[in-house]
C-alpha cells in the first residue's frame, strides 16, 4: 500500500501543521489508517476533523475506518514553482470520497497519464517518516 514519492525526494515538502482538532487524524494517517470522523448521534461522516457534528451539533464522535476510495472531481498540473524546491510539473487531484460524498480530499497523482474526470481512485499512503504519512491517489483499477 505504501509508495515512495519522487515529489518528496525531489522537492521541499511543506509539512502539515496539525491543530488540536486534527492531530489525532494525522496520527492515524501516520499509521496508514484511512479514517473519517463519524457522529455517534446521527451517523454523519465528516472531514476535516472537528469537534461538532455540522448536521446535529453533537460532540459525540468516533473514528470510522472507511473504504479508501473516491472519484476524481478535478485536477491541475502545476508548472509554476510556487514552493521552494518544487520539481515541476506535478499533478494535484481533488477527490470526492465514496464513503462521504459531500467531502473532498486532495493528494498527488504519480502516473504517466493525467486522471480522467470521474475516474474511480484509491488512496495510497506515502511514508515520509514515523510521524508523517500523506494520502495520495492512484487509479482504482490498479
Amino acid at each position: 500500500m505504501s509508495e515512495r514519492s519522487e515529489r518528496i525526494s525531489g522537492r521541499g515538502l511543506i509539512r502539515p501543521i496539525p491543530d488540536r482538532d486534527s492531530a489525532a487524524w494525522w496520527a492515524r494517517t501516520a499509521r496508514h489508517e484511512f479514517v473519517l470522523q463519524g457522529c455517534d448521534a446521527c451517523g454523519t461522516l465528516r472531514f476535516p476533523a472537528r469537534v461538532y457534528c455540522h448536521a446535529c451539533r453533537s460532540r459525540d464522535w468516533s473514528w470510522r475506518p472507511v473504504e479508501p476510495t473516491g472519484t476524481i472531481e478535478s485536477w491541475i498540473v502545476t508548472h509554476q514553482p510556487f514552493t521552494p524546491g518544487a520539481a515541476t510539473p506535478y499533478v494535484v487531484v481533488m477527490v470526492r470520497l465514496t464513503a462521504a460524498p459531500d467531502c473532498v480530499m486532495y493528494g498527488n497523482w504519480y502516473r504517466d497519464r493525467e486522471p480522467h474526470p470521474g475516474e474511480p481512485v484509491q488512496a495510497s499512503f506515502t511514508y515520509v517518516d514515523e510521524e508523517l504519512s500523506l494520502i495520495n491517489w492512484r487509479p482504482g483499477s490498479e
Binding site: 511543506i14 502539515p16 476535516p48 509554476q80 486532495y106 495520495n136
Partner: peptide, 28 residues
Amino acid sequence: SPEVQYQAPYGYVAPPQMYAMYARAHMT
C-alpha cells in the same frame, strides 16, 4: 487557515492553483 494543512503538503498553495482546479471542473 486550518485547511492549509490538508493542501500545502501536496504543493497546493496558491490561488491560481485553486481556481484552476475549479475551472477544470467547470470545463468538464
